[in-house]
């Protein structure tokens, strides 16, 4: 479906409105992450969520977070908790993250990675004046 300008603006607004407050698990699936086994990590999250019948959780792939040393890296965003990046997330640790961080709201020990940077998209307002 090809959009014209006003349709595009509407489309963008729609997306912004639709964002639900839910838990998001972002798995870094860049080449580096995949080489380090992030694919299996991704599957482990999905399996664990479906086997535990959890709802309101989205597992998403994303690009490289830049933390190559500790691939696979995963960011966990639970509403009401700070966003946390975990490093070296094996399938086993993925299950642990679901169990502790997502369900019990406890951070998992020894795996937290410092978040590299704050987000410019939240900081500055978009300046439309040219």
């Amino acid at each position: 479906m090809k959009l014209n300008r006003s349709e595009f603006i509407k489309y963008r607004e729609n997306i912004k409105v639709k964002q639900p407050e839910e838990t998001v698990i972002l798995v870094g699936l860049g080449s580096c992450g995949i080489a380090a086994g992030a694919g299996k990590t991704f599957e482990a999250f999905q399996d664990e969520i479906s086997s535990k019948n959890l709802s309101g959780i989205t597992v998403k792939q994303t690009g490289c977070m830049g933390l190559c040393e500790t691939e696979p890296t995963v960011e966990v965003r639970v509403p009401g908790m700070p966003d946390i990046i975990y490093g070296k997330v094996t399938p086993e640790i993925a299950r642990k993250i679901i169990e502790k961080h997502v369900i019990r709201k406890i951070l998992v020990n020894n795996l937290i990675q410092d978040k590299p940077s704050s987000d410019i998209m939240k900081k500055g307002e978009i300046d439309n004046a040219v």
Binding site: T62, G63, M65, K115, S118, M121
Partner: peptide, 27 residues
């Protein structure tokens, strides 16, 4: 963390690169 400042990598590790909606959501 603010020693880093992400313009180029603003979306890396944040959006799903395979979903255009994610990109549009972030303007």
């Amino acid at each position: 963390a603010d020693k880093q400042f992400r313009i180029v990598l603003r979306n890396c590790g944040v959006i799903d690169p395979e979903r255009i909606e994610d990109y549009i959501l972030r303007d």
